[in-house]
Design a protein around this nucleic acid. Sequence first.
DNA 1: AAGATTTGACCATT
DNA 2: AATGGTCAAATCTT
Length: 262
Amino acid sequence: MASPRLKREQSFDFEEASAQEAVGSASASYSPPGGGGVFGISPPESSPRDGRKRRKDRPSLVKHTFTPHFDGHLWRKYGQKNIKDSAFPRLYYRCSYREDRQCLASKLVQQENDDDPPLYRVTYTYEHTCNTTPVPTPDVVAEQPPPGAAGDAYLLRFGSSAGGGGGGAHQQQTERERQQQNTARRRPFMMLSFDSSSSHQLHEQPHAFPPDGQLPATAAASSPSSFTAAEALAAPPPAPLLTTTMNDGGDLFSTWTRSGIE
DNA sequence: AAGATTTGACCATT
DNA sequence: AATGGTCAAATCTT
């Protein structure tokens, strides 16, 4: 129509952000058909209409992080939608090389809390086939491998991507966000260097862990390198709930919930 | 000017 | 029917 653009006031749904969003959903976690990469992703096969594919057939990996934009890959935002069950909108990103390398990797970023260090739930879909060199991600995330590969094991990665080729790929999105949001409340990134030299990162959590929950976080302190599910398998907690808090020093905060997909 | 982002609308799935 | 996800055009920034 003649209306170039109707800037509609985006009235956010102030639903009081009740913490009752998908609590203990009986939805299955998702069962990947075959083995693949980290996601156990299967080839896209055929995409008649492009995009609109069955959400059920898409492998997804849910992660929690404070820096959803710093995962070592370049993403291009292609959409935003407000979810009914969430007080914050959901951001849709796709690999910047999607057209260049047909990288179907995509991710959904959704803010869960409005805490000082807001926690974002990132849902990765498909794996990167762009063959790009991921940059080190100074962030702490909790990965949940698809069931079937190793059962209900989780994978905690602290500052993953040890490669660090230094491709010099600056995150344009980050700059963009800073200008647009300009929250001025965000403190500089937390450089979490899990090195054996310093042992004051993962411990002294003010919050009490589950009685029987042997949080790998403690073990992580001992294992500066990447923490593998194998370690966690040593003592699988009865409750699939991981809650890692960070002390006032502002360092770490991991939250993993089994109800990733709803 | 090009690329990236934003917003609205359409469509697919549930 | 409702929600979520994606596409497309327009807009903005670099």
